[in-house]
Design a binder for these strands. Structure first.
Lengths: 357, 357
DNA sequence: CTGTTAGCGCATTCAG
DNA sequence: CTGAATGCGCTAACAG
């Protein structure tokens, strides 16, 4: 999308041969400005931060030099000195679809506020040990960012020097204020959808067993089966770990059973999409031979062939809620109550009535 | 730290017995560790950075304390001192779909490297002036990040203290190494698609006239017409500015011509979707009465009714290429040649054979 | 091997 | 009104 940044008054054209334009590589610091303007560093600082106590003439001259040199305060240096930065940090393990959708909602909600947004992926480097949450929070908090939103933390978030909101926390509930989706209810709805289509033999590809959401989704699945009077068959439940490749193995195992399921509820969309591919490669038609439903509603779900039926997490709203809560915490209010968002069924093409035996 | 907004009324902050300021758990600094371990700060620093010259026994003790206190080096402080941070910065105006898709590709490409990723939206605050590119780059570069990828800059990127890659730059070509899509070729392909469906009277909704991409897309359109021996009719080309509302006006003008077009190539998907809505409101059926094709392939394109035919920008690949180029720049190689990615036709439901007169 | 000494760029007292 | 001095948390010389 094109940003409508109306460039009404252009930047002052800096003539190429300008003697002021410094040679190259080095950043323009407050010292350069002070020297060029013939004032002290502290005066420049006052001008930049709009403090009182500077003569208009001095102020004007300094501003002139700042414009010419294209000086901007270093985020790093200033945040080291003063506690306030006006930056909200989003801490993620990596930028996967879920985090990106969240980011979208967060960015939109933050637009027009005084805050800028910084998203940090702190678990990209190899040997990515667990505990990226604490590390990122500790490395950025207290200095670079005024508050943090942590996406899908898998461990308890410890005490922090800045306000923190957790989105979709996978560990216990004793941490900071948290926002998540109704995993149990959503999984139950998904399974009920399959049951209502006439399926009786329904497989499940589980999520990461160390995560709370995975257990809740499995519970929802089992509850729906039980409510419908369908007995639970352990053979129909395999581990997918929320990952594409492992889900493919799980799907293969399920579909090569002597009596394979006619439908699969995968714990997330990634697994579901992987299951569809696996089914295709085994010569099965989705949804005629096999129905598949996922969980999340990532963008890819609407673009697959067939399009993926799923349960939607309102990621945009979750991001917006997180921002709202965080802003009120930054305003000094106490926020501790967790928020749970509803999950909604999105039926698409990958689910259909059960094949007649 | 929370600053009560009593500053205005002149009340001195930090009241003497303020137990509140003590309640916020302060960050653990290297000083705390040094003190607790009974060593000097520099020794701790050496341990943290795995430098040689520390006795095993000391090292062990320090590590023990670090673990107990949960200490992590402050990104801000360390990056202020040492130039290397192992962080790549992605600079965007805000997190909109295009940037997010890019981020996805960038994150995936960076996984397993030594670098972490920091994305910064520097144009969220109100009064977001143009020139966020320079400001963000100046505020982060040289200290916080080792290199930067700037997404859709609209102004020239000035000299910088760190390596920079621009993705989809909308201004001139004299800046840093740049990556964009084949706007001309893509537009030509889109128009040829319409021609191959039998359309001869093809309208065009232009993009923002101050942007290079808009001109290239119009050129591609005209080239395709010329190649097919169709004469160019200025009446069929209106300005849409890449925006929804202006595109709607343009579409209305086009469709109420005495001899309206049977197909429209819009300069971006947003305009195309707007044109479809306009056509519907005029009682036209898309694609039977009017074919519409866009440019970009934003996620919404696959979810509209009818789904939108378009030309796809390979955003994932563009992000990956940006990372590759940047990494080689960081490795000391000289990279200046721009990279151009291919655009590919994505035919969907909004285009069909021309209606028989 | 370890501690001491300088700053990195900036904001903030406190004297002139 | 202005500038010199101090320190934020940390790393990199250099001494001891």
């Amino acid at each position: 999308m094109i940003t409508p940044s109306a460039e009404v008054s252009g930047i002052p054209e800096q003539s190429p041969g300008s003697a002021l334009s410094q040679s190259t590589t080095n950043r323009v610091t407050i010292n350069d400005v002070a020297q060029a303007a013939g004032v002290s560093v502290s005066t420049v600082s006052k001008v930049v931060n709009a403090r009182y106590g500077v003569a208009p003439s001095t102020m004007e001259r300094v501003l002139q030099v700042i414009a010419e040199l294209g000086y901007e305060t270093s985020l790093v240096a200033s945040s080291l000195r003063s506690s306030r930065t006006n930056i909200i940090g989003i801490l993620v393990a990596e930028f996967e679809p879920f985090a990106l959708e969240l980011l979208n909602g967060i960015s939109a909600t933050l637009r027009g506020t005084q805050y800028d947004l910084m998203a940090y992926a702190g678990n990209l480097a190899p040997g990515g040990r667990a505990g990226w949450e604490h590390r990122s929070l500790s490395r950025l908090g207290g200095t670079l960012i005024d508050g943090a939103i942590i996406v899908t933390p898998t461990v308890e978030i410890p005490h922090s020097s800045v306000p923190v909101i957790a989105i979709d926390p996978h560990a216990g509930t004793s941490g900071p204020a948290a926002i998540d989706v109704d995993n149990f209810g959503g999984a139950k709805t998904a399974t009920e959808h399959l049951i209502s289509l006439g399926h009786r033999r329904i497989g499940h590809i589980k999520g990461r067993s160390d995560l709370k959401s995975a257990h809740l989704r499995e519970s929802g699945y089992r509850q729906a089966l039980q409510d419908a009077g369908i007995s639970y068959d352990p053979q129909l439940v395999h581990d997918g770990d929320y990952q594409r490749d492992l889900a493919a193995i799980a799907a293969t195992d399920l579909l090569t059973l002597p009596q394979p399921p006619t439908a699969i509820f995968a714990a997330n969309d990634l697994s579901a999409l992987s299951a569809i591919e696996t089914a295709k490669s085994l010569g099965l038609n989705v949804p005629n031979d096999l129905s598949v439903i996922g969980f999340d509603d990532i963008p890819e779900a609407a673009q697959s062939k067939p399009t993926l039926s799923t349960v939607r997490q309102p990621m945009h709203e979750m991001g917006a809620t997180a921002v709202t809560l965080l802003l009120s915490m930054l305003a000094g209010e106490e926020v501790t109550q967790p928020a749970q968002m509803p999950a909604s069924l999105i039926p698409r093409e990958s689910t259909a009535t059960a094949p007649q035996p």
